[in-house]
Amino acid sequence: MYSLQAVRPALEAGLAAIRQDLTLQTAVACGRHGPLLESLIGVLDAPARVPGIGLTKLTKVLHRKRPLFVPLFDQRVKACYYSTRANYPLHPTPGRPEALFFTTLGACMAQDLEEQPEQWKALAAQAPNDVSLLRILDVVAWNLGADSPGSTTP
C-alpha cells in the first residue's frame, strides 16, 4: 500500500487523462493507447521502482479504475501472448521496459477482441452487465493459459 501511495500522483494523473468510457479497442484503433498505458505502467520502469508491486498487482488496481481500458495481467494471460515460439505475438526481449511490453500486449488483446466480435458478444451475454470485455478476455486467458506449453516465465 505504501509503495502505491508513493506513485499515487503519477497514477492519478494518468487515470485522469483516460475517459471512463474509453475502450482499449477504440484507443488502439486511434493510436492513442500507447502514451495512455505508458503513463500508468511507466511507474514500474522508474529508477526508484515500486517495491512489492509488479505488473500483475498494478493492473488489478488500475483495471478497477478503468475497466474498459486497462487489461488485467497475470502469468496465465502472459502464457497466452508471450513465448519464444514464433506463433506468439510477444517474445522475450531483454531490457524491454514494462510500459512497452504492456502497451504491445494491450494492442494484441484489442486485436483479439476486434477480430472475433461475435464470439466475445456471445460470451458477454453470459456475464453480468457490469463485466467488461477485458475482464471476459482475462477469464478466457486464465483458463487457456493454465495449460499453455509455450509459456515462459520472466
Score class of each variant (00 low, 15 high):
Val77Ile: 10
Ala99Trp: 04
Thr59Cys: 10
Asp138Phe: 06
His91Gln: 12
Trp142Gly: 08
Arg64Gly: 12
Tyr81Gly: 05
Thr56Asp: 14
Cys80Pro: 11
Phe101Pro: 02
Ala99Asp: 11
Trp142Glu: 03
Pro71Ala: 00
Ala127Asn: 02
Ala127Glu: 14
Ala122Gln: 14
Leu123Lys: 05
Pro89His: 13
Cys80Asp: 06
Asp138Ser: 04
Glu118Ser: 13
Tyr88Thr: 06
Gln116Pro: 05
Glu118Ala: 15
Gly54Trp: 04
Asp74Asn: 11
Ala125His: 09
Phe69Gln: 09
Asn143Thr: 12
Ala107Ser: 15
Trp120Ser: 00
Trp142Arg: 04
Val131His: 06
Val77Asn: 01
Arg76Leu: 10
Leu90Trp: 05
Cys108Glu: 14
Ala146Trp: 12
Leu123Phe: 06
Gln126Trp: 02
Ala99Asn: 03
Phe73Glu: 01
Ala146Asn: 10
Leu72Asp: 02
Cys80Val: 08
Pro92Ala: 08
Leu123Tyr: 03
Gln116Val: 05
Ile136Tyr: 00
Val77Lys: 03
Gln116Ala: 15
Thr59Gln: 08
Gln116Gly: 10
Tyr81Pro: 05
Glu115Val: 05
Arg76Ser: 01
Val131Ile: 15
Phe101Ala: 02
Arg135Lys: 13
Leu137Arg: 07
Asn87Gly: 14
Phe69Asp: 08
Thr84Asp: 10
Ala124Gly: 04
Val70Pro: 07
Val61Gln: 14
Gln116Met: 11
Ala141His: 11
Trp142Ala: 05
His91Met: 07
Ala107Gln: 13
Glu118Gly: 10
Val140Leu: 14
Tyr88Trp: 09
Pro89Val: 11
Ser148Phe: 01
Leu113Glu: 04
Arg135Phe: 08
Asn143Lys: 10
Ala86Tyr: 09
Glu118Met: 11
Pro117Leu: 04
Asn87Lys: 15
Ala107Pro: 06
Asn143Ser: 12
Thr104Tyr: 01
Phe102Ala: 04
Leu113Pro: 06
Asn87Tyr: 13
Ala141Ser: 15
Leu68Lys: 02
Asp130Glu: 15
Cys80Arg: 05
Ala127Asp: 07
Asp130Asn: 14
Leu90Ile: 06
Asp74Thr: 00
Thr56Cys: 12
Arg135Leu: 09
Trp120Lys: 02
Asn129Pro: 11
Ala124Asp: 00
Lys121Ile: 00
Lys121Tyr: 00
Leu72Cys: 05
Arg96Phe: 00
Gln119Thr: 13
Leu133Arg: 04
Pro67Val: 02
Phe73Arg: 02
Leu113Asn: 04
Leu134His: 02
Tyr81Lys: 01
Arg85Pro: 03
Cys80Met: 10
Gln75Glu: 07
Pro149Ala: 07
Asn87Gln: 15
Lys121Asn: 14
Leu68Gly: 12
Ala146Lys: 15
Pro149Gly: 05
Met109Leu: 12
Leu68Glu: 07
Thr104Asn: 09
Tyr82Ala: 06
Ala110Arg: 00
Phe69Leu: 09
Phe101Leu: 08
Leu100Met: 08
Val139Ala: 14
Pro67Ala: 01
Gln119Ile: 08
Ala107Lys: 07
Phe101Val: 01
Glu114Ala: 14
Lys121Pro: 00
Leu55Tyr: 07
Leu105Gln: 04
Met109Asp: 03
Gln75Tyr: 08
Val131Lys: 08
Ala125Glu: 15
Ala110His: 03
Leu113Cys: 07
Ala141Asp: 14
Leu144Lys: 13
Ala99Gly: 06
Arg64Ile: 01
Tyr81Phe: 15
Thr59Leu: 09
Glu114Ser: 13
Thr84Ser: 13
Ser132Asp: 04
Ala141Gly: 01
Leu134Thr: 01
Tyr88Cys: 08
Thr103Met: 06
